[in-house]
């Protein structure tokens, strides 16, 4: 059982950490959330079906982030640790359309400013590429609700003045 659990951590760690990281300002807080989530997974191990594990983890992460921000009353504001994302982004710049790492920092900051569930849905779908079915189970929504929230999240992101200015400057 422990081996299977470790495999699950290895398989889903990145998804959990990414969702937490794009929701919180601090990398350390995001890691704490991820740890908490995987400890919960261990506690609930017998009752979490293998084929629903990702959706379960996403739901628990989403709830843990909301809990955390309520407890700490953290303002989900400007992302001032963009360097970490930039550092990780450095290697694969050639694959993306983003010209500079600074843009990624701005986008990450704009994503953090979104309210839930817009932020979680945008990260799960557009950043992590999760299937709609997994998002539906994670957030207990139906397909149309997920799409409506996703489209509204994208519109809200486009309305971010700083981001728009950044892209205008590129043109």
């Amino acid at each position: 059982m422990q081996n299977e659990y470790r495999q699950a951590i290895e398989q889903y760690r990145q998804k959990v950490v990414t969702l937490a990281r794009y929701s919180l300002r601090s990398a350390a807080d995001a890691e704490d959330i991820a740890q908490e989530v995987f400890v919960k997974l261990w506690h609930h191990w017998p009752s979490v079906d293998a084929d629903r594990r990702l959706a379960w983890l996403m739901r628990v992460t989403h709830n843990a982030v909301i809990d955390f921000t309520r407890r700490r009353k953290t303002k989900l504001g400007v992302f001032d640790e963009a360097a970490e994302v930039e550092e990780q982004a450095g290697d694969d710049d050639q694959h993306g359309a983003v010209e500079t790492a600074a843009i990624r920092g701005d986008i990450a900051a704009a994503i953090r400013e979104l309210d839930d569930p817009f932020r979680s849905i945008l990260v799960m779908r557009d950043v992590q590429g999760l299937a709609y079915a997994d998002i539906e189970v994670s957030l207990e929504m139906n397909a149309s609700q997920v799409k409506v929230y996703l489209h509204r999240a994208r519109r809200k992101l486009r309305q971010n003045a700083q981001l728009r200015q950044r892209f205008d400057d590129l043109d």
């Binding site: 991820a34 994302v85 993306g96 359309a97 983003v98 990450a108």
Partner: peptide, 23 residues
């Protein structure tokens, strides 16, 4: 442009030390 940029955002990971802490 923005949609492509968001899709190109990197995933974040925290390495083996994380697994040890969870263990």
């Amino acid at each position: 442009q923005l949609h492509e940029a968001v899709m190109d955002l990197p995933s974040v990971d925290c390495g083996a030390a994380f697994d040890a802490r969870v263990d």
